[in-house]
Amino acid sequence: MSILVIAEHDNQELKSSTLNVVTAAQALGSEIDILVAGSDCSSVAESATKIPSINKVLMADSEAYKNCLAENVGSLIGKIGTNYTHILAAATSNGKNCLPRAAALLDVAQISDISAVVSEDTFERPIYAGNCIATVQSSDSIKVITVRTTSFDSSESEGGTASVETISENTDLGVSSFVKEEVAESDRPELTSADIVISGGRGMQNGDNFSLLEGIADKLGAAIGASRAAVDSGFVPNDMQVGQTGKIVAPNLYIAVGISGAIQHLAGMKDSKVIVAINKDEEAPIFQIADYGLVADLFEALPELESKL
């Protein structure tokens, strides 16, 4: 068995989601290589060598991989993937974008968003917005898998001594190009790996009112999320959406404010350890899964909560 983990990075830093994928890979076997495909990405490869128990780090350094264009990175993975029995990436926007292309080139199924490894060919994954958990067995010779990062702990990131092997394969399909990126800078912890998340929904009424959540997030060191309704209404940007079709989070504490608790929202947060709901409607479905429910007007409850933390 030989396993390839696709590193998630921005050409400078290795992203922590890679460490969750390594843990999933370790549940499969011990021969693990990591692929770092990027441009001027040697610092990322360097960090990857320090992950304990990694066999080797493959570095593909080319302008073609700079912005993780799926056409190029997908075909690179498709080419080198034939050497492996398992290929794993995080179920991030990059992983979801690139990995199915590789699977199609290898003529194998992709198993999306696994939440558990049962055996080397059998995996659990949530379906129907997490309302059911399917156990699926693959008959393909290569298993291509995206990993739900919140379902696997982080592996260690220091202590390893893997070597870096440069691969010269340069697959530029020449059909797509990067134009621009608008990425919000934030001092807050990342939504998908934060210990505490506080999310606002349509009940917040507008974007300015999210400042009521910010005060609390500052005191708790929390990340801020949102429901689809809050994003669709333009209160906050798309990358804050938690749910079936947004980000999956599973913090120690999730505080849902002015969120009704639709199935699609629950799909993204119901594995949180402790759930708090603040909603003025005592019938709101969110209370059915909340450990602590506070029936209150958020415009009164939030300032009071901030002052008492």
Binding site: A109, I111, T122, P126, I127, G130, N131, C132, I133, A134, T135, V136, Q137, S138, S139, K270, I275, E282, F287, Q288, I289, A290, D291, Y292, G293, L294, V295
Partner: peptide, 17 residues
């Protein structure tokens, strides 16, 4: 792929107000 089984996820215990 073969679906070996499909199960309901563990229920969350009801909380308090």
């Amino acid at each position: 792929l073969t679906t070996v089984k499909v199960a309901n996820p563990p229920e969350r215990e009801a909380g308090v107000k």
